[in-house]
């Protein structure tokens, strides 16, 4: 998995990962709260490249559509997905474990390979 995030807002997280800490990442679909969480004991920090931008643009556009459909005002939806390309950095890892996290019964159950 390759996660892109802003450097300035995640200094402590990047330091911890750089020092070998484990990592948990949760993904949530805005419209219906379907969620899952991945965990890893080890991750690598890599520079973001211009090759990342088309996929960033595609995913943020989809996310923004979801937010607008939920009734978020356009300026809030835009602000929520905004990012500074110069600030981006990447974290790469292989997930050790995956858990469902959709609210309700069964949340937290581990997905077996």
């Amino acid at each position: 998995m390759r996660i892109l995030l802003g450097r300035a807002g995640n200094v402590a997280l990047l330091e911890a990962v750089g020092a070998g800490a484990g990592l948990a990442v949760t993904f949530t679909a805005a419209p219906d709260h379907r969620s899952f969480q991945v965990k890893t004991s080890h991750a690598e920090i890599r520079p973001a490249t211009s090759d990342d931008l088309p996929e960033m643009d595609r995913q943020t556009a989809c996310f923004m559509d979801d937010l607008l459909e939920l009734g978020f005002p356009p300026e809030l939806a835009r602000g929520y997905v905004a990012f500074d390309p110069a600030d981006l950095i990447a974290i790469e890892f292989l997930p050790d474990r995956v858990f469902t996290q959709t609210p309700g019964p069964g949340a937290g159950a581990e997905l077996k390979r």
Binding site: A21, G22, A24, V25, T26, H33, Q37, K39
Partner: peptide
């Protein structure tokens, strides 16, 4: 309005993150 994100960890330092 915007869901918050909560991070915890267990006693061994394994993180957990949820909305």
């Amino acid at each position: 309005v915007v869901a918050a994100v909560m991070a915890t960890s267990d006693a061994d330092g394994v993180p957990n993150v949820s909305m």
